[in-house]
Design a protein around this nucleic acid. Sequence first.
DNA 1: GTGAAAGCGCTAACAC
DNA 2: GTGTTAGCGCTTTCAC
Lengths: 351, 351
Amino acid sequence: MARMTLQDVARTAGVSLATVDRVLNGRPGVNADTAARVRAVMQSLNYRPDRAAMRLARGTGHRFCFVLPKGNNAFMLALHREVLDAGRRFAADRVDVDVLEVDVFDGEVLADALHLLAGRVDGVATVALDHPSVRHAIDELTLSGVSVVTLVSDVPNASRTHYVGIDNVAAGRTAGSLLGRFVGGRKGKVGLIAGSLALRDHIERQMGFEQVLGRDFPELDVLPVREGRDEDEQVERLVAGLLSAHDDLVGVYNAGAGTGGLIAALEASGRGGEVVVIAHELTPASRRHLLRGTIDAVINQNPGHEVRSAIRVLLAAREGMPIITGQEQIRIDVFIRENVPALADGAAQGG
Amino acid sequence: MARMTLQDVARTAGVSLATVDRVLNGRPGVNADTAARVRAVMQSLNYRPDRAAMRLARGTGHRFCFVLPKGNNAFMLALHREVLDAGRRFAADRVDVDVLEVDVFDGEVLADALHLLAGRVDGVATVALDHPSVRHAIDELTLSGVSVVTLVSDVPNASRTHYVGIDNVAAGRTAGSLLGRFVGGRKGKVGLIAGSLALRDHIERQMGFEQVLGRDFPELDVLPVREGRDEDEQVERLVAGLLSAHDDLVGVYNAGAGTGGLIAALEASGRGGEVVVIAHELTPASRRHLLRGTIDAVINQNPGHEVRSAIRVLLAAREGMPIITGQEQIRIDVFIRENVPALADGAAQGG
DNA sequence: GTGAAAGCGCTAACAC
DNA sequence: GTGTTAGCGCTTTCAC
């Protein structure tokens, strides 16, 4: 049983190749009866389109652009690396991938950057601030025919095709539950650090975290959230403050970046052993401290998976193909010392 | 800057298409100097092969076969479903995927099945027993030009192209560490159930588990491993036995399937609240009990990811392409109540 | 409404 | 050693 081609369908349906193609791609200009007949033949011959032939004939490539935050946050750098890497791989499939670095914390700047992309690319993946101008820019991009996906942090009311990232409320809840259980029944205070309360992701993590601690661990007292601005120095200062103000501090959850500062403050205080630490994102630093025992658990989202997923989703949108829901669902990874993945040998890490 | 084609390379190098093709694919019959010149031109023109054109011209499809265990183990059924689903998707890329169900616990039967596949398919992915006949069958398949990957459970000394699955020792260690921490300092006995000690995966999990408990949780006593044969009834009987023999049972780790039986025994005893339960694989049943609190954590490997990874690895082997190491690394998922993924709407789940 | 025909970028015979 | 050429299965003008 060889593969059926459009030729086979055309021949058995008694029409020309062009007609079958029109039917296949839902283009107008075909008599309803003819179309029905052709469809029937496709069914009975079990015809499956050949993607390689389709791409070759269409000849059209895709230009995608990733809009990422400027700065040297380890996770964002990893995302950037993954984009470059994925770009290299997808080149063989005629997709060109670019990166644009902007200050995503400034809604107007981000919105301007997005506007500029209209007409220059076919798809955009952006780590976006949930801000009126940004929402508007996304809607306009979509209207102008560009496919848009949000990455890592969502903009729920914008007309994006898809959100590629984890459920951050659930991530916060996961952190809360692990912290509560790891504290092991002791009573005391728990510190909560976010990067910035401008991006949705950190707010959502905070919500989830407080929700679980309030519900399941009444013996723990969550201190008011502090903004660490994703910077080591700032986080270090905050944690040092918490440690000196509360000698019953039994846990700290860093919902943002800057975990290096958290560790530094803890080590300086000599109280590392008694404080349970939950952080986000597997970076060289967090990995090291996880193995060493300074960090108890890392909640992670896989940057490689996110980038490839964004590209696949954009491609599917462009080629009118369905996506594999399961494959595009980004999981909330929980890493403890025992299951940290081995360092991948190249730049790429994750699945 | 438009895409460069082989034509462009040929023209600027002053040779014919065929010569450039020979260089590109490392085929013999080209003067070393000519080859060098062609390669230089490719570089300078930044030539990137077009995969669609290549596939179309080669015209050759791929036939892959998944050899899976017979039976109604929920995880294996999920794997099976994922293979069918992936087969549907990959059809557009000219790959045909079949499933062969055999009794993998019988080395001779499995070896015979593998032998039969020689010449009939281009690639095989198998959940394999580590047994001399199986090892030999894999080696022969490889010699006959079939690409082979092991799936879920490895056969380390066979000439397989790749192992697609998790590090089971690490999975066992992860289970041990979580169980130990969740028990929260109480003293007592811990039950350990494996499915069968014939497949490597369960033995490896046992090793990892015992290693961590022995090292990090000396207050816990691991009882001798029992074989639950991956069946609910058998596991239920074993756990009921453990419960009645040890009233200081504080935890149970089921390294195999049959978790339904574990739960049943626990519920019948009325001691569910005091026993920490760690199980493997996210199934409808384990998911339900995780949410309900009967199971404390599930260690999971993503069947959808494993199947797609196996196909990608086999495809890469056939087409002489490199694989993305990070993407093909199967992670050890840790799921607690707070981060269980939402049920995917189709058959497919996982990324 | 429908069909004929010229490619898309590469591969593989076969000829020189 | 190297070049010519006829496709692979589809899309897309353009003609009828």
